[in-house]
Design a binder for these strands. Structure first.
Lengths: 231, 231
DNA sequence: AGGATTTGAGGACATATGTCCTTTCTTCCG
DNA sequence: CGGAAGAAAGGACATATGTCCTCAAATCCT
């Protein structure tokens, strides 16, 4: 991780991230611009947090590990996003590990500075409310979706929501390379993802070529993602 | 639902709920004390919300219904708790239906009043942050727990966490009457709850008498709740 | 290139869980 | 009290999913 304290650079990043109104004057000087390389961890589950990070550029993935060592990818995150906000509010250890998927650019503020200069600044509080509210919403729909749908439906949903905007050039292609991540993301085993995927292929819903998945029947996939359920 | 606008009564309730610092002067006159009867709904999934409710006394249950009609109980809620906060922040329809389990006492504020007089009042914003943060935490652990553990572990967990403090008098007793609720709460079918419960009984973990469950082996239950996992 | 090593896919089997239906047990009414 | 109606529990079967292993494909090292 590289820290950049140069005020001009920080200011530039803040403007870029559309965060200009958030910080009261007293906080400005406390901000640090941080750059993370791919695969670098921003924070690790279980640690005691001291800094708040606001994502300005890049993409990261957030996952949790159970005592038994099972990994569960919670989500991929893109700006605007904040890391360490819940922990800051609740005064608890880091809940998830967050890792850079692409190079990142983030604004960092210490909890100390936040407490001292941030907690009486409505725009900042409102921003945090908005962010945490979004996190809650995502978590909430994720919970009901996972509890109410089979792995098949979850995979269909995943293919639909992630298969497209992942690849820059091609419309309907996606790397298979991440099947293990996919399994963790939808909360099932790698084996099962393969099994279901095979069924999709046999049914002509998707195509698998040279480690690349292509969606053939968006409609039917959508149907599976919605209709399938468990009671 | 009964509305009480009498300022003294409202003030009394606010003090009782420990919410004195939350409301700026301008908001005080907008507050209404509401009493709900058992089984009354505070809000219904899908509706457009206009009011924020703060629970002061009583217990309610919060559940969601999927398009396919499956019900999933998300949690039982006790003070301090807020209803409609996420919806207020995000400007979205009501996410869950909330129903009174016991008679309730709540403070009501309109979204309009909140926008006008509440959003620049740091104590209120901080309170909301705290509440939403807690909701997120609960939702979060609920998600990983559900995704990472079998129904057996979830039932064991439920018995441990709800079987005790529910009944006022007896230590280890709990009404079976709510087995359907239990099933919805841990995201499985009523049939399966019965099946697993039977296993527990055969193994001498719990006892079932006249519609009353008694926990016999807290230790082993705890073991099941923690150890069991899925990858 | 050729074997060694790693990674991905699929087979076989066991368990978990859902669904539908039957059996019990309660409750209630005449 | 006896049977009707409703709620709770359990049986049977099908499907979903996890686990362990084997086989195939890609990668690497010399």
């Amino acid at each position: 991780m590289k820290e950049i304290t140069n005020p001009a650079a920080v200011e530039q990043a803040i403007i870029e991230g559309g965060l200009s109104a958030l910080f009261p004057e007293a906080l400005r000087s406390k901000l640090v611009l941080c750059r993370f390389d791919v695969r670098e961890n921003i924070c690790n589950q279980g640690e005691t947090p001291t800094q708040l990070y606001i994502l300005i550029k890049g993409k990261m993935k957030c996952y949790t590990t159970s005592e038994q060592g099972n990994t569960l990818i919670l989500s991929f995150l893109t700006p605007p996003e904040v890391i360490g906000d819940i922990e800051f509010i609740q005064g608890i250890p880091i809940m998830n590990t967050v890792e850079a998927v692409t190079p990142l650019e983030m604004i960092r503020v210490s909890y100390q500075a936040m407490h001292q200069f941030g907690m009486n600044h409505p725009p900042l509080l409102q921003f945090l409310l908005k962010i945490i509210g979004e996190k809650f919403q995502r978590k909430s729909s994720s919970l009901s979706f996972n509890l109410l749908h089979t792995a098949e439906a979850r995979l269909a949903w995943y293919l639909l929501s992630n298969g497209f905007d992942e690849v820059d050039g091609e419309e309907a292609g996606m790397q298979v390379s991440s099947l293990k991540d996919t399994a963790n993301l939808i909360g099932t085993s790698y084996r099962h993802v393969n099994r279901v995927l095979r069924r999709f292929i046999e049914d002509g819903l998707v195509k698998r070529e040279k480690g690349m998945l292509t969606i053939l029947d968006k409609e039917r996939l959508r149907f599976i993602a919605n209709e399938d359920s468990a009671d």
